[in-house]
Computed example of a mutant assay.
Amino acid sequence: MKLFKNAQVYAPSPLGRKDVLIGGTKIIGIEDSIELDSNNLIETIDASDLILTPGFVDSLVHITGGGGEGGYATRTPEMHVNDAIKGGVTTLVGVLGTDAQTRSLENLLAKAYALEAQGLSVFCYTGSYHYPMVTITQSIKHDIMLIDKFIGVGEVAIADHRSSQLSVHELARLTSEARVAGMLAGKAGIVSIHVGDEPAKLTLLNQVIAESDIPIAQYYPTHINRSEALFKAGVEFAKRGGVIDFTTSTTAQIIAQGEIPAAKALALALNANVPISQLTMSSDGNASLPVFDSKGKLVNLQVGAVSSLHLAMVDAVKLHKVPLELALAAVTQSPATILNLHHKGVIAKGVDADINLLHAESLNIHSVYAKGKHALAAGEVLFSTPF
């Protein structure tokens, strides 16, 4: 057992000074003071100068790499487990992107199981940018129902020159498959939507919602901070009950072309009275960050970083005056709730012991605990990995 003494706890809502006790992989006690008769089996951690938060939940990571829009030499590398741990990410969702030919779902699952063996909690989406969807079994429904890691489908691309130019009927059909499979399997059945920079923005989603019985919250559109116009469309989408996600990985060139930094987008959405339960940030880690010219030709490409999630959370607090509990919720409780991962993203009795300790002033990461195991101390990853 591990006992965190006198920590300033954000669950992510502020609980004040508390002692937090974990046993094995679970949180088993949160009290003003916990005193145990024997210390023989207990490691006590003095957290009096630290903030204790849930481990971060990153809802979109290209764990097997991505990219390739500039040819084979531009395929981005796989994510290393250390990248997540150093960024305070203890739970993540792995996805395919543009390339579902040389990046397979089988490889995605194998990588997910490897990261899980190395200490993280990892889930996946079946499918990819394109329609018809790639699957492992004979359908989206079978993948979600019969393969434990699959919790939804995505990223399905819309408003993007790289997409399959889906029709309303096609998107409605694949969404209904994911939704029903999720209901039957007790999973989110969410449809992750990659929104590109074409003028259509969220038009296709709005048409499906208007013309079908599919609830708006079945969709989880990301990259909503890509432009001011898309951000405004996203805020309207959220005010109708939808959830929206802001991407934290970016470059100076992309921002110069009109992208709103995720931390600023979060602040603006909150100021527009969008509830934090409908707002998240994700890293898009290890994805390509391409810049195309007006003819769709690739002119620059860099790689997304999982560490950007923590940095954006800090920027939201430090630069944009977002209350810490709300900035934390955007990378913990909100994505966990949207993805139906109720054992993640909060500090509460009975949930997984995924814990970050942050320095109170800087909000830099002091320590990370993943499912009760000490994963990071003084900037050094404590898990042993073969490569």
Rank of each mutant, 00 (worst) to 15 (best):
Y10V: 08
P14V: 07
K18V: 06
V20T: 07
T25D: 14
G29P: 04
L36Q: 12
L36Y: 05
D37N: 10
E43K: 12
A47E: 04
L50K: 13
L52R: 01
H62S: 11
G67R: 00
G68C: 06
Y72R: 12
P77Y: 07
P77E: 10
M79R: 03
V89S: 03
V95L: 12
Q101Y: 12
S121N: 13
S121F: 02
T126E: 06
D143G: 05
D143W: 06
D160G: 05
R162L: 15
R173I: 06
R173N: 09
S176K: 14
A181D: 01
L184K: 10
A188W: 01
L202R: 06
V208L: 07
P221R: 03
T222M: 06
V235R: 00
R240H: 10
G241D: 09
G241E: 09
I244S: 03
I260S: 00
P261N: 11
L270S: 04
N271V: 00
G285I: 11
A287V: 07
P290L: 11
P290Q: 09
L298T: 08
V299L: 08
V306Q: 09
V306L: 11
M313W: 04
V317P: 02
V322T: 08
L328D: 08
T332I: 06
P335E: 08
T337E: 12
H343Y: 08
A348R: 12
K349P: 01
D354S: 05
L358Y: 05
H366T: 05
L376H: 09
P386H: 13
